[in-house]
Design a protein around this nucleic acid. Structure first.
Length: 296
DNA sequence: CAGATTTGACCAGA
DNA sequence: TCTGGTCAAATCTG
């Protein structure tokens, strides 16, 4: 979708939210009004972000990367393997290590001190790497600024059976679609929520996505995002799934920011909003599939 | 004892 | 040459 169309869609969404607000009966719960206000603020933030210079760099810079990924050329250079990352605030390191609540299991294969970072980076790969040739990997590193935040970078797609056939439940459906393994060893409930993409979306716990990759702000990348529509229940088309191409993941930005964020190297898309505490139903109303697809 | 983790060494890209 | 990513032997754990 073209950039201007994206802005138009956002504006339309904003207008619709405004209309919804005016249609709300005065006796409606203040919570509903509050939610709409947050939605409106989110639209405004998104429009601000998009109008802040991102437009100039859209599409051009990311094309080679996408081409490489789509060609499936992951062997020549490590760089071209699709990757995306997120930052999660957790209360224990185990929350981002090991097998996830989606059933993806991870095996640690290395740890490395990173130059300029206070904390070492841990390397994990899918436990089915050798049995099923699953090449999914992830890296986990504590944030220098906030040790309670773990930056998790995923690379590659899960091709193991778990990833391919676990679409029975909504949660697993979601995970499969995202190719976004949920970190493991959920030792406490909040963490499990944090790492469930759906929980991610609607948890009130603070979850942050890293912001330093906003390269579109300095002439970098800004890729049209393909929306994880199964988030709202549409069918997964496996290899046809747009997420398998764009490797997007739903994340939050700070306490009250909802973001959809892609990172192929640095492509980044964020949909800022203030939708924490919003239910799926609320979001379904806010973002129809048609509207969501404008990011894809 | 099998599988997971640790950790130093090695490799490849920039 | 430096640094990040991966390998693989040693070690740990259930």
């Amino acid at each position: 979708m073209e950039f201007l169309s994206l802005i138009q869609e956002l504006n339309q969404g904003k207008q619709l939210a405004n209309q919804l607000r005016t249609h709300l009966h005065p006796s409606s719960s203040s919570h509903g009004i509050l939610l709409i206000d947050k939605i409106l603020r989110s639209y405004e933030n998104a429009l601000l972000a998009l109008s802040g210079g991102a437009a100039a760099s859209v599409n051009s810079a990311i094309a080679p990367v996408n081409a490489a990924v789509q060609d499936g050329d992951v062997s020549k250079k490590r760089k071209v393997m699709a990757k995306w990352s997120e930052q999660v605030k957790v209360s224990s390191a185990s929350a981002v290590e090991g097998p996830g609540c989606d059933g993806f299991s991870w095996r640690k294969y290395g740890q490395k001190d990173i130059l300029g970072s206070k904390f070492p980076r841990s390397y994990f790969r899918c436990s089915h790497r050798f049995t099923q040739g699953c090449l999914a990997t992830k890296q986990v590193q504590k944030s220098d600024n906030d040790p309670t935040i773990y930056e998790v970078t995923y690379k590659g797609r899960h091709t193991c059976n778990k990833a391919l056939h676990s679409t029975n439940t909504p949660q697993e459906h979601q995970n499969t679609f995202l190719q976004h393994p949920i970190p493991p060893k959920q030792e406490d409930k909040p963490l499990q929520q944090l790492h469930d993409p759906l929980c991610f979306m609607f948890s009130s716990d603070p979850i942050r996505v890293k912001s330093e990759d906003l390269e579109y702000a300095n002439g970098g990348l800004f890729q049209p995002l393909r929306t994880p529509s199964p988030m709202f229940g549409s069918e997964v088309q496996d290899d046809l799934s747009p997420f398998r191409e764009s490797e997007c993941s739903p994340t939050f930005e700070s306490n009250d920011m909802f973001g959809l964020w892609c990172d192929f190297e640095t492509e980044f898309v964020s949909i800022p909003s203030s939708m924490t505490n919003i239910s799926i139903g609320d979001l379904e109303e806010c973002f129809s599939f048609d509207n969501l697809e404008m990011f894809c």
